[in-house]
């Protein structure tokens, strides 16, 4: 690691001010940032440790939903009683990610902002448009088995690796942001930015802005939601494909549907078209198959990730069929 200064402010406003220094970065759990600093992918000159900002560590009830502080640990959120009862897919998504030790360290905001696991991005000796804008993308003609099939561009085909973000997409979470004394909130569905010609820009977060909390609105359908993750080994591996889903079913007919995908998109992927297909139809396998087709309709594959299209469809059907409230 390269030398860096270290500060530990106790107010969000002070952290935001410090963040104005050029080449500075926030550190929360450190499980992604330090990893990338050791690999020389990130080289911040100033680290701002936000762990002393008490107000960022709370989970509050909020109009039937939750307001989750940016510093709430992944393990605490996953085992929170409200989350287990009302948003089971969120708990399942978090617990399917990383390992118990990492989840004890990882924060809510850090999880949302974790960088891709594209092996070229993580190898600082390789070109990569995301790490070094304009240097090229070796994944497109290289080894791309873990790469995205949705939302890709000619510049980048890397997947967003977060499991938690997939569930939060399906739940229509809202990201609370603070910077330069001003506060704003952005729906998570508008928070992530497609790579386009600028894969280095991943979210709408601006310089000096800090995520303070994530709001999870009340959603009746989420009580019977589910997260299903398919990976190369049974545990402690990133998703090849994952599905977050929730259905509100009355008399066998779908009233409301939520569907989001992980492991296949350049951003956590919400399937609005597929959701439209589900609503108003019987909660049966035939309907789920139609939705699955719609979800991957715009897929663009590369040499080694063609398998993801079929795997994605089957995972969607399996996840929806396994919901308990289909009758």
């Amino acid at each position: 690691m390269r030398p860096f200064t270290y500060a530990k402010p106790s107010q969000t406003s002070d952290a935001s001010k410090s963040l104005k220094q050029s080449n500075s970065a926030i550190i929360a759990g450190g499980t992604n940032l330090l990893d990338l600093m050791k690999l020389d992918v990130n080289q911040p000159a100033h680290l701002i440790d936000i762990n002393k900002i008490a107000e960022l560590s709370q989970i509050k009830n909020n109009k039937g939903g939750l307001l989750v502080g940016a510093l709430v640990k992944n393990s605490d959120l996953a085992h929170n009683k409200q989350v287990l009862e009302n948003f089971p897919m969120l708990s399942q998504a978090i617990l399917s990610g990383a390992s118990a030790q990492v989840r004890n360290m990882a924060s809510t905001a850090g999880n949302l902002l974790q960088r891709t696991r594209c092996y070229y991005f993580r190898n600082s000796t390789m070109p990569c448009n995301k790490r070094d804008p304009g240097s090229g993308c070796p994944a497109i003609d290289g080894y791309n088995r873990i790469h995205a099939i949705l939302g890709t561009s000619d510049s980048c085909i890397a997947t967003n690796p977060s499991d938690m973000a997939v569930a939060l997409m399906a739940l229509d979470a809202v990201i609370h942001i603070e910077g330069s004394g001003a506060k704003r909130s952005v729906p998570i569905t508008k928070f992530y930015v497609l790579p386009g010609a600028h894969p280095e820009k991943e979210t709408v977060l601006k310089d000096g802005e800090i995520i303070t909390a994530v709001e999870i609105p009340q959603l009746a359908a989420a009580k019977h939601s589910r997260y299903l993750k398919i990976r190369d080994r049974k545990s402690f591996a990133f998703a090849l494909v994952s599905v977050a889903c929730a259905l509100d079913v009355k008399n066998g007919v779908i009233k409301e549907a939520r569907l989001a995908l992980g492991g296949v998109g350049t951003i956590p992927w919400r399937c609005t078209e597929a959701e439209k297909i589900l609503v108003g139809k019987p909660a049966k396998k035939e309907t789920f198959k139609l939705a699955a087709e719609a979800a991957v309709k715009s897929a663009v594959t590369h040499k080694h990730n063609k398998f993801k299209v079929e795997l994605c469809k089957r995972t969607i059907v399996k996840a929806l069929s396994a919901l308990e409230n289909l009758a």
Partner: peptide, 15 residues
């Protein structure tokens, strides 16, 4: 009291 991976955290963060 909680298990963590000591390689992914800085000593200074544990004042």
């Amino acid at each position: 009291g909680r298990r963590i991976k000591s390689c992914l955290t800085l000593a200074v963060m544990h004042d």
